[in-house]
Design a protein around this nucleic acid. Sequence first.
DNA 1: TAAATGTTGTTGCTAATATAACAACAAGGT
DNA 2: ACCTTGTTGTTATATTAGCAACAACATTTA
Lengths: 263, 263
Amino acid sequence: MKAPRDVPTPLLESLKSLGLTKYEALVYIGLLRTAGATATEVHEISGVPRASVYPVLDRLVQKELVSVSHTTPKRFAAIPPDQGVENLMRRIESDAQSARTALDALYREKGPESRGDQELIWTIYGEENIKTRLAEMFKSAERSVELLATGDLLQRSVLSLLDPVPGSVPVEIVTDHWTGEQPSRFRLHLLPLAALCETPFLAKKLLPYERSGVFLVDDTRALLWMEGAEGQPSALYSESAGLVLFVRRHITTVMEWAKAAVQ
Amino acid sequence: MKAPRDVPTPLLESLKSLGLTKYEALVYIGLLRTAGATATEVHEISGVPRASVYPVLDRLVQKELVSVSHTTPKRFAAIPPDQGVENLMRRIESDAQSARTALDALYREKGPESRGDQELIWTIYGEENIKTRLAEMFKSAERSVELLATGDLLQRSVLSLLDPVPGSVPVEIVTDHWTGEQPSRFRLHLLPLAALCETPFLAKKLLPYERSGVFLVDDTRALLWMEGAEGQPSALYSESAGLVLFVRRHITTVMEWAKAAVQ
DNA sequence: TAAATGTTGTTGCTAATATAACAACAAGGT
DNA sequence: ACCTTGTTGTTATATTAGCAACAACATTTA
């Protein structure tokens, strides 16, 4: 009989978030290391109290993670991991689906009324969320789209979001680095690299972090994308006149400075 | 201010299985029905105690389900449901991935040694699990594949699994119903419908449930697929000589009976 | 201006629930 | 008689839920 050798905690955490309890995880892991064990053997291998093993095994069978033999005493075997994890995911995915539809019903109920967004500044966490918001902004553009972003951010995350901008709306892009040909769709302003290198201090000021950007749509909606070196990215979004004005000025200033430096 | 109108419990359950606590679910749902609420308003809308609202909102921000405004007092807004659920699923999916690899490492450690399968009869729950096991059986067939199944089960779940059967292995199929042309790949035995209708009692005996089947590979591995009217399907699998013999006889008997009835 | 009021955000404590762990025992097999 | 299996309670322990009290700050009112 094998020792109840200890199990890495991160694995336990992962399994918990898939809906297993600690015991269920321990028993399943234990069973993976054997082939057909009795309840008592499961107890010995997993370190789970013998009396607790029975209900736990019942639940695991219910969750389609183990199969049972028709002998006395009963013997138990684990379903292979990929199959088993998929079984768990299927349940969760179905929950996600029903939650999605139920929540969506509630969400639509309120309609897009009084966008409290008006004078507030929102912080959005997570790249996905930021990109979704940016996409909304771009799609709803009516008069202008201006953006000032590091080449990195621009190419990797933002450029693909620009497709839905209506054809009649001019798009102005200011960046420090551009690979590929000049795009006809956008008006491109390249920050003079030479000047940037001469004054790294200034470069830092204009494009402070590794990946960062400033986005302005219709002179009414602004988004500031900032990404600390380590953590997840976050962004500020606002329709506040004050912040919009500030962004407005910032972009203009940078463009003016770029023109001056080029001369 | 809206009432903390009660929330359907199944929705709460779904959200719990996505890793939210009851309070987190209530607050998120509450936020979906407004646009930018203060902590106190969240408390009123969701029915969650005001003091509890703060830690809960913190966690929701962490989980990328709500965004925060930079005002005093802070205001909170929900990320749209589909986006939010996707954010939750991303975490879970990543947990599933790491669990899969970690478990697989453990699983391989033991190798396919001492197949305890030898003399045991296993019950397998869930259609996916059964199909996986059937696929394994078919793929490893070396001498013969025989199956006796209701037409329904055959066409909907089993037929597609037969592809991996090695070309040199003969496949015998006994069923009550077959649509489409005669397959060249298999040897097909149709149970005489007329006789079946005359003796519904017998029909029930031979193919007891709605969807059921008996599968025999190489005269050494047998699987009995049974499906109660309501619950999830289950199956018996065995390499036990006794059970295999029994299945062997059963299939032969049915085929003999069919021949006799036809005359 | 100063007291009165009200709201926000915190802290700490208690209650309820789900999970974990143990003790005891009946049934059956050796 | 002994040991093992499977079952049933009962007791811890951890997580979550719910409450009360308070300091900080702003707004009103005398």
